[in-house]
Design a protein around this nucleic acid. Structure first.
Lengths: 252, 252
DNA sequence: TCATAAAATTCCATTGAATAGAACGGTGTA
DNA sequence: TACACCGTTCTATTCAATGGAATTTTATGA
């Protein structure tokens, strides 16, 4: 109610309905009317009517046991979104190559507001692997890709990344997102759009030894550079800079 | 207005907003306010307010050139849907194996109302391949998986598939969905849920020679049987039936 | 099995949110 | 420079959304 009712406002009933939609998360993928009413703060009759509209649109489906889950239309729209970015044919092969050469899992993250979502993921074939499925939203403050997306968020067509920023690449994270999870990430830039996302290799910390990390670092940088090139970006074109700095990073 | 305002109805404003959302398709992923107003029939001021709510929820984003596209929240929700079905860990490996052994692309379709959507897809590495990306909605009347999903749609926990139905498997489609596209499909059943989906191999018609088709048929049947088993289903347990009929099918 | 509790669903008078269309402003085109 | 088109803001009217109570359905357990 008192949330954010400012600016040129939308339609309250729609806001409420979509708020209900947002209650469905990985942790709570299935909710009863009572839970929805409680969590949203809307009385049950109101929540129910909103749910009917959501169901008619196929965004929500009712289960046999009188619960609610997200519906098939979300899937259609979600893939429409994924395709609208036109990144998949570029990113997927690069990730696949990374995974083949390292045996760890490769992902591509994109910043959306103050979270990051896993747009693409290629799993390693290892039995032991961490798991951030595609579509998962994670905070910006944790993990190597999070740092990358924060650090380079102000990069756009007019303001390229500084040498100092590039010098710190790739960013390595050990035990941040979870005690046993490690990751190595680097930013991907587009021509005019600036920061597009972050490419990362991740896996169980036990396999990320100093030696292994040193082996993977140049591969991640190379992948980020390849992707940036494919998107028309040029920040990695100063390869001398990156190469020089990169030697430096390896020592650190 | 006169569309469908019957039954225990929901909330009109929400219906309108979600109708706007449904205007975004593969063919028209990007719409201006004018187009939205025209296609939906809502006056521009109304459409604009609904769009504001949709934007606040992250389901729609405005592009730099004053157009609208689906937003990142659809992606999050879409993958939540995909995961809520709990099919991916089961289906994906089977598809991958199919692709490896045949060189064609494998997909898993699910019926949603009177359309089918591609839930999972594993591309072949061949240069020439047809393309139905994940999330794409296709009609039930065309293509091998469409026929499968139609033919077995009445199968549920209480009414198993008849021998006659099973005998016609797998269903082969040549040049139906497009003049150059061929596919081989078979149904997947769950324990109590009945028909869960259809697994299919598809590719350019030129590679689907009678010989190649005969080679692929048992693999598709086997994949469908494996998936059905993994889901607790048992329709393929009458393997004698399937095997016998299958020999018959090969001759046909 | 029936009684009790809890949840979902329906109903309806009140009211304020959504609406339509006109007016405004901005941008590109002839 | 003027015109035409598109997006955006404004506002009085009205009808759709609301919430709470009533009713029905489902779950629990004695």
């Amino acid at each position: 109610m008192s949330e954010v009712t400012l600016k040129t406002k939308g339609v309250e009933a729609v806001d409420k309905a979509l708020h209900i939609l947002s209650l469905f998360t990985t942790e709570t993928p299935k909710l009863s009317l009572g839970e929805i009413s409680q969590r949203s703060g809307y009385v049950k009759s109101t929540a129910l009517r909103l749910l009917i509209s959501l169901q008619n649109a196929g965004l929500i489906v009712a289960t046999a046991d009188k619960n609610y889950m997200v519906g098939p239309q979300t899937f259609r729209l979600g893939h429409l979104y994924q395709r609208s970015l036109r990144l998949e044919p570029i990113v997927r092969p690069v990730l696949r190559a990374l995974v083949l050469r390292t045996g760890e899992s490769g992902s591509f993250f994109r910043r959306e507001g103050n979270i990051r979502i896993c747009l693409f993921r290629e799993d390693s074939s290892q039995v032991l692997r961490e798991h951030v499925p595609e579509g998962e939203a994670v905070g910006l403050d944790k993990g190597a890709p999070g740092h990358v997306l924060s650090e380079f968020s102000d990069v756009d067509g007019t303001r390229p990344a500084s040498e100092g920023q590039l010098g710190r690449l790739p960013i390595v994270s050990l035990g941040e997102r979870g005690p046993d999870i490690a990751g190595i990430a680097a930013p991907v830039f587009g021509a005019a759009q600036g920061l597009v996302g972050a490419v990362t290799l991740s896996g169980p910390r036990t396999r990320f030894t100093p030696q292994a990390i040193d082996d993977m670092k140049p591969l991640v940088i190379q992948a980020a550079s390849d992707l940036t090139g494919a998107l028309g970006g040029s920040f990695y074109d100063r390869l001398s800079v990156v190469a020089t700095r990169f030697d430096h990073v390896k020592q650190g």
